[in-house]
């Protein structure tokens, strides 16, 4: 059913796949996501729609190998079929009225940020992309970002790619140099988004953060993806995944994200061992 038509390794831990999913491709918009299962006993995991082709009926996903399910997914190949693939879920990124936007991505969050940058660029919005990685081996989608941005800043923690430093340093520099953004869109690790939002709050720039809590159904049925925004409980899968970054309770989100850490560590080890045995 949901055949993997193309598989490409972007770096040692990040993989791109193009999936045959005509119904999803027909309705997909940037900012939305899908939920997949690799096999009939698999876990449901959410991944952002990185790209889509309505006429070919394909949807592109980009994922980082972080645990058991992404490990299994990465062992699947062109011609294999995913057991389940449902979407598009969540709300699309709001683009109306925007003239100049800073897109701030970190790590694999860049895979989620890229389609947003691309869409804005296509709409004629001036896009400044600031992307950060731990080191040069982890850099993904550099050319794609360059093509979708009128300004592109690459940062790395150790200085092996682009400038040495954090994305918040780069963003601050741009703002201080006089760049006026109608909006900042940030996607990446929670801790990074928290500090981006703290910075833009000082400058009073409206900021949207894309949240990735643990999810199951993705339709509003379980409440597992809930988070607090402006003192109210929201479900990321239906009310989000993008929220006003100045209102999100990031500390709570970080605690919730760690709910199953021990289980995940073991599941990943098991998956790795399994594939070692197979080899």
């Amino acid at each position: 059913m949901f055949e993997i038509l193309e598989k490409k390794s972007l770096n040692p831990t990040v993989t791109l796949m193009k999936i045959n999913a005509p119904r999803v491709a027909k309705k997909a918009e940037p900012g939305q996501f899908i939920i997949l299962r690799t096999d009939s006993e698999g876990e449901r995991i959410p991944l952002t729609i990185a790209d889509y082709d309505r006429s070919a009926g394909t949807v592109t996903i980009i994922f980082q190998i972080v645990g058991g399910t992404t490990e299994k997914l990465n062992h699947m190949n062109e011609g294999d079929c995913l057991h389940d693939f449902v979407g598009p879920l969540g709300r699309a990124t709001e683009t109306e009225g925007l003239k100049k936007v800073a897109v701030v991505g970190g790590g694999v969050g860049c895979a989620i940020a890229y389609p947003v940058a691309k869409k804005l660029h296509e709409l004629g919005v001036e896009v400044h992309s600031i992307v950060g990685f731990r080191n040069k081996d982890l850099v993904i989608l550099e050319n794609e970002f360059r093509n979708a941005s009128s300004k592109f800043v690459l940062m790395s923690d150790d200085g092996t790619a682009g400038e040495k430093g954090l994305v918040t340093d780069a963003l601050k520099k741009l703002i201080d140099s006089g760049e006026k953004y109608d909006r900042v869109i940030t996607i990446g690790p929670l801790i990074m988004m928290k500090f981006v939002c703290r910075l833009t709050k000082e400058y009073e720039i409206p900021t949207v953060a894309s949240m990735n809590p643990i999810m199951i159904d993705g339709t509003g049925m379980c409440g597992g993806c809930r988070l607090t925004v402006g003192g109210e409980t929201k479900f990321a899968c239906v009310d989000g995944p993008e929220f006003d970054g100045h209102l999100i309770d990031f500390d709570e989100a970080m605690a919730r994200g760690a709910s199953y850490r021990e289980f995940e560590r073991k599941a990943h080890e098991d998956a790795c061992n399994l594939f070692k045995e197979v080899k």
Partner: peptide
């Protein structure tokens, strides 16, 4: 209510 270890019955049963 959003602490770790709090479920809706739907999530728990699902």
């Amino acid at each position: 209510e959003n602490l770790n270890g709090v479920y809706s019955a739907n999530e728990f049963l699902t």
